[in-house]
Design a protein around this nucleic acid. Structure first.
Lengths: 144, 144
DNA sequence: TTAAACCCGACTAAATTGGTCGTGTTTAGG
DNA sequence: CCTAAACACGACCAATTTAGTCGGGTTTAA
């Protein structure tokens, strides 16, 4: 029902936690997983993906961990979700071109949905990790 | 990946078709399904749901069919999706209270996401069937 | 009376999501 | 230089959700 996946939820919790991490210290996957009762293997994989895509920086070896690779207001919700779940597409037609759907010639909704998709991505990209951390206070998403 | 379900897609195609139906005529499930290559049983069920929730009016018996129960600009995308897929919740915490998640006391994201959810619903409720029919021309979603 | 249509719930199959496991690789610290 | 703590990765299984099917109804125009 148009829901963000558990993986994204976990990722966002972890990112928020890392944002509040004292400067100079690292967050470890296991530790974060324990705090929020997240299966640690699952969180580990999520953090690895976030690191691979440049949202987190990983420090290898014993006493290693993760830190944010950029400032909280530069990490957008759209980015986090796309990183963890793959390309967001309100409808299939929007991400894959040509869309593999059977409607092909008769698909009357792919054009309007391309516009909706675009506006939805703007919506998501206007929300930053910092906003989420501040409980969305004072956020009036403005449009155009 | 944050996608509208096939059922909603089918429903929207059918609604758009019905919007363009000559006044006084009905659209039949089988007929619409054929045009857009939608499995007819599936579409039938979707149209039944839309009728039950008051978005469509059904005409029973032979030579029956469906017509829109209200004008195109009064049918909102939020309404259609909620009707077909059930309550939209970006995260579970938002729809069910209390949320059944294990994070319970330590869930740091449910509050901000309640706000995001609210804004997302506004986003969806500003898009009408008429907008979709007009290929979203001239639609600048404005926010607050 | 019949056939065309809506109506409804139960069921199955396919796809996606959520979570686990095993095996590496890197590196601080003893 | 060894060990343990941590990241990295891919393969796999389980649970849930979505998609689609089927077999019955009921209503009504012709």
């Amino acid at each position: 029902m148009l829901r963000i996946s558990k993986k994204s939820e976990y990722g966002i919790m972890a990112l928020k936690h890392l944002l509040n991490q004292p400067a100079g210290t690292f967050g470890r996957a296991k530790e974060i997983a324990d705090i929020y009762s997240i299966p640690s293997e699952a969180l580990a994989k999520i953090l690895q993906t976030l690191a691979r895509k440049g949202i987190l920086k990983s420090i290898q070896g014993a006493r290693g961990g993760y830190v944010l690779a950029k400032s909280g207001d530069n990490i957008k919700l759209s980015e986090i979700i796309e990183c963890i779940e793959g390309p967001v597409g309100i409808v299939d037609c929007v991400t894959s071109e040509p869309c593999g759907c059977v409607q092909i010639d008769n698909c009357t909704i792919s054009d309007p949905f391309r516009v909706i998709q675009e506006q939805f991505m703007i919506f998501l990209s206007r929300i930053s990790l910092l906003d989420i951390n501040n409980e969305m206070e004072m956020r009036q998403v403005s449009w155009q």
